[in-house]
């Protein structure tokens, strides 16, 4: 009996170690890895209940395996997550995947899977991705970061063959300003309930990309 138990235990370990990565995710990863560099002009629109900021323009430069650089003449709020249109953050560390079935959005069926990093270096603990298996791309992912909370990134594409999204919607958690630095005046009235609220609010940032240059690996 003990022999059977040991045999079962060892075989379980072996099976876990050899866990397959979802073929669709591997295919998307391979497709994204073909992008070597890109440059784009981005329009950023921030929607946070307690922040008023006009639409901003910026220029971004992406080089594979490097941090995306953002340039702007104005002051811009750059989301810590969401500008990563190449999905580098998801795939840069070793990971395993878990199939979560399918989900219907706007009469279209998408595959749902979890990406779980197997390395401690990863800056997120789990991501849930919605995959368009026909067009071989991710249309939405929810990522639970270790430091910056949970983000939902929704991606829309111009054409069915596009690898990179034309616009992105990033939904994130954000706490209300707790220290109302006042310059005196009309804001003397403070809604105590709002300021004392511990409940995090959500904010959204909309990014519209106009790609000016995309280069691909030739391997």
């Amino acid at each position: 009996m003990i022999q059977y138990i040991i045999l079962f235990y060892l075989s379980s370990i072996c099976l876990l170690g050899a866990q397959n990565i979802d073929s669709n995710i591997l295919s998307i990863q391979k497709r994204m890895d073909t992008i070597e560099t890109f440059m784009a002009n981005v329009e950023l629109k921030v929607d946070i209940s307690f922040v008023n900021i006009p639409k901003k323009q910026a220029r971004i430069e992406y080089v594979q395996n490097k941090d995306t650089k953002v340039f702007s003449e104005d002051f811009v709020l750059i989301p810590k997550n969401g500008l990563d249109v190449s999905l580098h953050q998801l795939f840069k560390n070793p990971f395993i995947t878990v199939d979560r079935g399918t989900e219907i959005r706007q009469n279209k069926t998408y595959k749902v899977a979890n990406i779980i990093p197997s390395s401690k270096k990863a800056d997120f603990s789990i991501a849930t991705v919605l995959i368009d298996i026909n067009l071989n791309r991710i249309i939405e992912y929810e990522i639970s970061t270790k430091k910056d909370g949970i983000y939902i990134v929704k991606m829309n594409y111009d054409e069915s063959a596009s690898i990179l999204p034309s616009n992105i919607e990033v939904v994130f958690e954000i706490e209300r300003i707790r220290i109302p630095l006042k310059y005196m005046g009309k804001d003397a009235h403070i809604d105590k309930k709002t300021y004392k609220s511990e409940t995090p609010k959500t904010g959204t940032i909309f990014l519209n990309f106009k790609y000016t240059k995309i280069t691909y690996n030739t391997f």
């Binding site: 922040v51 953002v70 002051f75 958690e173 300003i177």
Partner: peptide, 29 residues
């Protein structure tokens, strides 16, 4: 930094806010 503390969790900032307009606003006060 104190004022933007909450936003720093979700955003990187590009650009300088300690500029002539902020100073003018402070003097205006």
């Amino acid at each position: 930094d104190l004022l933007l503390d909450n936003l720093q969790q979700s955003f990187h900032f590009e650009g300088n806010l300690l500029n002539g307009n902020l100073l003018s606003y402070l003097i205006l006060n």
